[in-house]
Design a protein around this nucleic acid. Structure first.
Length: 179
DNA sequence: TTAATGATCTACT
DNA sequence: GTAGATCATTAAG
């Protein structure tokens, strides 16, 4: 039995719908994300700015079955697969405003047996990359299109670990690896 | 993007 | 010369 706190739900909704996507990306840093009972703090994010962003799937309004989740409301989970990896995004704006935040890296609260089995790596290699954290947590496309804090994936707006150094770079660059 | 494989470099017995 | 580290290439769905 999982107890969902309405306050948490509402708080996350506030964070997601009342800010620009770039500021949401920054705000999400340090928050606890949980899937399958495995948890970690978000340490790296990236904003995707819809139709103006060439790297974004919704560039120039591109709309297909694959990226339909991007056009749903704030809090929708968008999982897409590329290079054989699953990447995790959270939609941040109103319906038909296809913007989102890509979760690029997390710092596990603890590295347990499940994570070690999901991944074949040790240390910070467990989840220091967009394709790695989805493997570590076992996230796949089955949750694509579902709402955050409702089914499988939880984002805790209260459990918060203040990042000691927030840096911002252009798309490609140095990472805050945490720890 | 990730991870494995192969190539190149570096410091030693 | 060889182990170990570092760099380049490539395949994966």
């Amino acid at each position: 039995m999982i107890y969902i706190n309405d306050n948490i739900k509402n708080n996350i909704k506030n964070i997601l719908s009342m800010n620009s996507t770039t500021s949401i990306a920054k705000k999400l840093l340090g928050h606890l994300i949980t899937f399958n009972g495995l948890s970690g703090y978000i340490v790296e994010t990236e904003a995707y700015l819809g139709v103006e962003d060439e790297a974004c799937h919704s560039y120039k309004g591109h709309h297909s079955d694959k990226n339909n989740s991007m056009y749903l409301s704030a809090g929708t989970i968008y999982v897409y697969s590329i290079f054989g990896q699953n990447l995790l995004n959270i939609i941040t704006q109103d319906p038909n405003v296809p913007q989102g935040v890509l979760i690029r890296a997390i710092q596990p609260i603890e590295i347990n047996q499940s994570m070690l089995e999901n991944r074949n790596q040790h240390g910070y290699n467990i989840s220091n990359g967009p394709g790695k954290l989805t493997q570590a947590l076992g996230i796949d496309k089955t949750i694509n299109g579902t709402m955050i804090n409702c089914n499988h994936l939880y984002l805790d707006s209260y459990e918060f670990n203040i990042p000691n150094n927030i840096i911002s770079t252009n798309r490609i660059g140095i990472k805050n690896k945490g720890i």
